[in-house]
C-alpha cells in the first residue's frame, strides 16, 4: 500500500516536471520571437526617421525655386543652394538640431546624348554633412530634382542624395 502511494507521488512529480519543461521551452521560444519582433520594430523606426528627414528636405524653402512666392518642391535654385551651403557651414545651432545626423549632396547631371559618359556629372554640392561620432552605417535615398539657374535661365537635371547616419 505504501509503495503504491510512493509510486503515485513519483508519477505526479514526473508529470509536473514534463509540463514545466514544455512550458520552459515555450517561454524561451516566445522570448526569442519577442526579441526578433523588437529588432523589426527598431528597423521600422529607423525607416520612419529616414522618411521624416526626407520630408524635411522636401520642405526646405531655403533651396527651393520660387516664382511669386509659389514654391516648387521638385525644383532647387542653384544660387540658393550656394548661399545655403555657405550658411550651413557657419550655423552650429539651428540646422544641426533640425536636420540631425545626415548628409545632403546635390549632383548636377547632363543626360544629353552628345555628352560623353565620364563628363555627365557637371557639378556637385555637399550641402550638409553631420556624421555621428560613432557611425555604424549609412542609409541612402535619392530624389531627382530640377536645378534652376535663374540668371542664365537654364534648367539642369539633378539628383539630391540624402544619407542618414546610423
Amino acid at each position: 500500500m505504501r509503495k503504491k502511494a510512493q509510486l503515485q507521488i513519483m508519477e505526479n512529480v514526473f508529470m509536473l516536471l514534463i509540463v514545466f519543461v514544455i512550458l520552459a521551452i515555450a517561454l524561451v521560444f516566445v522570448m526569442m520571437m519577442q526579441k526578433a519582433a523588437q529588432k523589426d520594430k527598431l528597423e521600422e523606426y529607423k525607416e520612419l526617421d529616414m522618411i521624416k528627414k526626407s520630408q524635411i528636405l522636401s520642405f526646405l524653402p531655403e533651396m527651393q525655386c520660387s516664382d511669386n512666392n509659389n514654391l516648387d518642391p521638385d525644383c532647387f535654385d542653384i544660387y540658393k543652394i550656394d548661399v545655403f551651403t555657405e550658411h550651413l557651414k557657419k550655423d552650429k545651432l539651428y540646422y544641426p538640431n533640425l536636420l540631425g545626423n545626415i548628409k545632403i549632396e546635390i549632383i548636377e547631371f547632363d543626360p544629353s546624348p552628345e555628352i560623353p559618359d565620364d563628363k555627365r556629372i557637371m557639378r556637385t554640392w555637399l550641402v550638409y554633412d553631420n556624421p555621428k561620432p560613432d557611425v555604424k552605417g549609412e542609409k541612402n535615398l535619392q530624389f531627382p530634382v530640377l536645378l534652376k539657374d535663374v540668371v542664365e535661365n537654364n534648367n539642369h537635371f539633378g539628383v539630391i542624395k540624402l544619407g542618414v547616419y546610423e
Binding site: 544629353s112 530624389f143 537635371f157
Partner: peptide, 19 residues
C-alpha cells in the same frame, strides 16, 4: 517615398534643358 519618385522624375526631366 516612392509615390513621389515617378512624378518628381518626370517633372524634373521634362523641364531639363539639353545640350
Amino acid at each position: 517615398i516612392d509615390p513621389k519618385l515617378a512624378q518628381s522624375f518626370l517633372n524634373s526631366l521634362m523641364n531639363t534643358k539639353t545640350a
